[in-house]
Amino acid sequence: MNKILDVLEVEKTYISKGNQYPVLKKISLSVQRGEFVAVMGPSGSGKTTLLNIISGFLSADSGSVRIGGVDILHADREKQAEIRSGVLGFVFQDFMLIDGLTVEENIMLPQIIIGKGENEIKNQTDSLMNFFGISEHARKYPDELSGGQKQRVAIARALSNQPMLVLADEPTGNLDSKSSKAVIDAFLMAKKKLNATILMVTHDAIAASFADKVIALSDGQIVRNLVREEEPREFMNRILEFLKEVEAGK
């Protein structure tokens, strides 16, 4: 396995009304190719800020974020856009599908952006729709789909350019348990069959229990690295225990 993501001593402090609020304190982590990593922590622990910095949506005060060896933090806006289209894939809590485009067109969109050929786009889109079981919805619009179906479309879209890294922000946050399970299954399939690398920020211990590794954040620091060696159910118990400890520590 080789290193896809390398976060090194990233710091971020918010300033409001003259007061400083450190959100990330010298965070370092790495993700290997084909890994499925979950970032967990209580509200305000800095996990979404970390994801936004890795995406290049937010700047850091110091440190570096390398994706496939390229420092996204110090790239200009144009370069960051290139990295996002070619190297990263995004899955959001609110799906962020374009309502005016069909399922098929939403999946095609990232491929059109990087200028793939028409046939290549068509083949890749069909293949992803088959893969995630959404072919029958190809001509439907997002408002005709359930939450779980929408999120599967979002995952297919995120994987359409075979990105080095898929970043998922609370992908099960707006879903019921059945739909959440379907989304996690989609991630696991992508990891297994497409060798996708996934970094997922979540509150959901069940979703996190399927990851290879859980990075636990508290007060802007990584407080534990939980590596899964057992079945998801047992791993979830370890995660819940850790969360209790964090709550108790507060």
């Binding site: 995406s55 806006r77 996002r84 070619g86 962020m96 005016g100 952006i113 990087i114 879209r157």
Partner: peptide
């Protein structure tokens, strides 16, 4: 705005 945000997150240049 939402559409614009999606385009940008997908890597379309601003």
């Amino acid at each position: 705005r939402k559409e614009t945000g999606i385009y940008m997150s997908l890597g379309l240049k601003p």
